[in-house]
Nucleic acid binder design. Structure first.
Lengths: 206, 206
DNA sequence: CCCGAAATCCCTATTTTTAGGGATTTTTTT
DNA sequence: AAAAAAATCCCTAAAAATAGGGATTTCGGG
């Protein structure tokens, strides 16, 4: 009873060292590899891995897009994201899109093997630094001040019940500007609707 | 310098008596008439009236629809709504759609002539009873308690930032039910967006 | 002087919400 | 018991919001 693994990484070197690492655990079998996600769907169809080790920064079709494609078509396949930096936005984009874990490239080898095992068993594997960031999003404190002056102004007008168009008129800018501000507000607050934005406003900013 | 008037009313009798009335004022000229709004656009194009006297209850295409069509294409034409009853919803639908006034059929003849004159000059003419209803909507007092228990529940969940779908799941009912509740909430509070609803919730119900 | 954050604007496509109907069943209230 | 109010569900179409890109300008600090 082995764990079938597919590796995506644009560096041949890196793929080789990963294969060397994984070969230490006889339960793990690297069934195939690729330098990017252009053929992600076919890859999965052909090799039906249990776990995908996914680098984020790859040319052509990157890991975030690959993750989406794979989870969309094969929700049962576990995808473990792997990158050099702990970029907050990418972490959340990944988790939102169904990643089973997020590890860093300089994590200890033992950690990586452990992570694969965890996600295969249905758990989630997060590098501790990543885990901290995730938890941070549940304490709204520091987010309060993260909005720019304009974003705060837009949010307060939305909280009055104004539509994008009305806010645009009131501030003398175009609709698209308000759309952009709102997108940034949603990004910063990690929400995705006007209702959540207004609830946030009255709960934390009022 | 006369005022060109178009009369919409399904009762021939009523149209005749209106024409008789309006002929008393030599400034007023009834340029044409129709028993409903099927050809409203063409009517206005052909006769370019200054003021339209619009009955609400007519077969085929009624006055509310006629109002919308006319104001949509010819915003400069004044439309004076006229009906037998002071139905709150129709009043608000009319005013929202750009009616210049709202009078009742049993208003005194003198009132009717006056109303036409007012709207022609760019003013608004409201029967006093109607005016009262309109003012009522600006005092939020009585609206506070007007929501049904379920409507209040739905509103409070929306105010938490939940989408229609999430509210539906949470309450174990279908999406369309929430849609309907929301429509009723908006009607009762005389608003028309989730933003206004949530603002109302935090300002008046919290 | 360069960099980065902030603010502005645009395009495209999808998802949600809103509006306008209609309709049935259950509860309450008279 | 009949009427009114509340709650449920459905359909369709239009409007608004959301998501994902990209891009330019301004302004303040290092």
């Amino acid at each position: 009873m082995s764990i079938r693994i597919f590796i995506y990484d644009d560096s041949t070197e890196r793929r080789d060292s990963l294969k060397a690492l994984l070969s230490l655990d006889e339960q793990l079998v690297v069934v195939a590899e690729a330098p990017n996600c252009i053929h992600a769907i076919q890859d999965i169809e052909n090799y039906f891995p249990d776990v995908v080790l996914m680098d984020i920064n790859m040319p052509e079709v990157d890991g975030l897009e690959g993750l989406k494609r794979i989870k969309n078509k094969f929700p049962e396949v576990k995808v473990l994201m792997q990158t050099a930096y702990d970029d907050s936005e990418k972490i959340f984009t990944s988790l939102k899109n169904g990643a089973s874990g997020y590890i860093l490239k300089n994590d200890k080898p033992q950690r990586i093997l452990q992570a694969i095992d965890e996600v295969f068993k249905g758990g989630a594997a997060l590098n501790p630094a990543i885990a901290q960031k995730v938890l941070d999003y549940f304490k709204p404190a520091q987010r309060t001040t993260s909005l720019s002056p304009k974003e705060n102004e837009v949010l307060s007008l939305l909280a009055e019940g104004l539509s994008y168009k009305m806010v645009a008129d009131k501030l003398g800018v175009s609709y698209t500007t308000i759309n952009t501000h709102t997108k940034r507000i949603y990004e910063k607050l990690h929400i995705s609707s006007i209702g959540e934005a207004i609830a946030y406003y009255y709960k934390h900013l009022q």
